[in-house]
C-alpha cells in the first residue's frame, strides 16, 4: 500500500465514526488492513504531518484526527 492510499483510508475511516474521536492503534491497523509493524510506519508519518495526533491517559495511548474532539478545545489546543 502506498502512503497516500493509507492516508485516505485513515482520514475516511475516522471521519465516518461520529460517536468516537479517539482510537486504539489496533483500530487504525484494522482500517488499513495491515500488520501492526507496517501500519505503524504509515501512522507515524501521519503524526509527523499533523494529520493524526496522540492522546494519552498516562497508561494508554490513543490516536485521533488532529483538532477533533472536545478535549482539543478544552485545552485550548485547537
Amino acid at each position: 500500500m502506498e502512503y497516500e492510499e493509507a492516508k485516505e483510508k485513515i482520514v475516511a475511516g475516522l471521519s465516518k465514526k461520529k460517536s468516537k474521536t479517539k482510537f486504539y492503534f489496533n483500530d487504525l491497523a484494522k482500517i488499513l488492513g495491515e500488520k501492526p509493524r507496517a501500519a505503524k510506519k504509515f501512522i507515524t508519518q501521519m503524526v509527523q504531518e499533523e494529520i493524526l495526533e496522540y492522546w494519552s491517559s498516562g497508561s494508554t495511548s490513543l490516536y485521533g484526527l488532529k483538532g477533533v474532539g472536545k478535549q482539543a478545545h478544552a485545552e485550548h489546543e485547537d
Binding site: Y54, S56, S57, G58, S61, Q71, E77
Partner: peptide
C-alpha cells in the same frame, strides 16, 4: 483530570497530561 493531547512533537509518550 488525567490524560490529554499534550506532548512534545513526534513523541507519543513521556508527558502525562494532568489538569
Amino acid at each position: 483530570k488525567h490524560g490529554g493531547i499534550v506532548g512534545v512533537f513526534g513523541y507519543g509518550g513521556g508527558v502525562i497530561g494532568r489538569y
